[in-house]
Amino acid sequence: MDELELTEPWEGVLITPGPSSHTGVLVLAGSSGRIERERARILAQEGMTAMSIRWYGGPGQSPGICEIPLETFVSAIDLLESTGVRRICLLGSSKGAEAALLTSIHDPRVDGVVAMSPTSVVWGNIGPGLDGQQHPYRSSWTWKGQPLPFVPYDDDWRAAEPANGPKAIRGWYERSERTFADLLPTAGIPIEETRADVLLVAGGDDAMWPSLPFAERLAARRRAAGRPARLISSAEAGHRLRLPGEGPAPASPQFLYGGDAVADAELGAAAWPHILDLLRG
């Protein structure tokens, strides 16, 4: 395998399995913003050209997930396409899944999307924008300079866990949906508009946000439009699903993610053959 470090216009890594590959995969992390090297390497070992980029928090980028241009991912697809791959796919987790689904709607070159622990609506910003401000809430994403409709957060919500320990914030998202229910129709991700094949993977014990209900809504919305969508789920898995070859996710001092190492790996293993089928087309 050949591993190329990327520095412009964003930090990242491009891994090619050999002289040519049929599929190119853009791998997007969630709110950590990290470059998903391990996951990209695993995909490259399966014969795919895999790229992962830092899509916020890097040089010249917004310090938070605030009004991130979807064109960031379009330009990454440009680079991936230039390697000669014939099938373009996106694989994202959490906020990365949100970005992947939205990008596939706006860029018709995307042939497939794997959305792990996804959301069914666009959410407000997490952290500050380029202006350094966190409030009032703004959209996480823009397209052609315009913010996408979004659901803000109800800041009256309080976690049940002690103030000095990691917290489950799923209830914050659930309360925010109830508080701003009138915004849900316009903030919904129009998954029926993507031409890409769609695979959703979610755990019912997700303590970060209700990804399984979100995934079920996405699948129902797509099927109502006469378009297929496959959902792989487990009642025991949490937010940070692990694919075969990946180690367990480290504990967080801030958040509880639900599930456990065994359940999260089992759902990843169950989804893996379906992920490979979709990516390979």
Rank of each mutant, 00 (worst) to 15 (best):
R158H: 13
G171Y: 11
P9I: 12
L278S: 07
V121L: 13
G112Q: 04
E246R: 11
G238F: 05
L70V: 06
A237T: 10
L90S: 06
P273C: 01
R240A: 12
P69N: 07
E192Y: 08
E174R: 04
T7L: 14
D2I: 15
S93I: 12
G165I: 15
A181R: 11
L43N: 09
T179M: 06
N164H: 11
N125A: 09
E174K: 01
P228H: 04
M1W: 05
G245H: 06
G24P: 06
Y153G: 00
R195M: 14
A251N: 04
G124W: 03
G112K: 06
L184C: 11
K144V: 11
L231D: 09
P19T: 05
E67H: 09
T186I: 13
T83M: 05
V114T: 04
T23Y: 04
P248I: 09
V198Q: 01
G258T: 05
E236Q: 14
H135R: 14
L278Y: 10
V27C: 00
P244R: 10
P108A: 11
T119M: 13
T186W: 00
S20A: 15
P59K: 12
A263S: 15
D206H: 10
A115C: 00
G12A: 12
I275R: 02
D277M: 07
V27P: 02
L79W: 02
S52L: 09
D277R: 15
A225D: 08
R170P: 01
V113F: 02
E174G: 03
A97I: 06
P213R: 00
G18S: 11
N164W: 00
R227E: 15
D131Q: 09
L102M: 11
L14Y: 02
L90G: 05
S82I: 08
G127M: 12
G258D: 02
G171D: 12
G226K: 08
A237F: 09
Q134E: 15
G129M: 08
R87H: 12
R37E: 14
R230G: 03
R175S: 13
G64V: 10
R54G: 04
K167R: 14
G145C: 10
R37Q: 12
E193Q: 15
I42P: 03
S234I: 07
A40K: 08
M48Y: 04
D111T: 04
I53F: 01
D78Q: 01
A235F: 05
T16S: 13
V201D: 06
S252Q: 03
R109G: 02
L90P: 02
D182M: 01
A115W: 01
V74Y: 03
W172V: 08
G129Q: 04
A249H: 13
H239V: 07
A271K: 02
T16H: 01
W141D: 09
Q45D: 15
I68D: 03
Q254G: 01
S93H: 06
S252E: 02
L200K: 00
N125T: 11
G204T: 09
E216I: 00
A229T: 05
P147C: 06
G18V: 13
L212D: 03
G47H: 00
D264G: 05
Y56V: 08
L79A: 08
G92Q: 07
L6M: 12
A160L: 13
A50D: 01
G57C: 12
E246P: 11
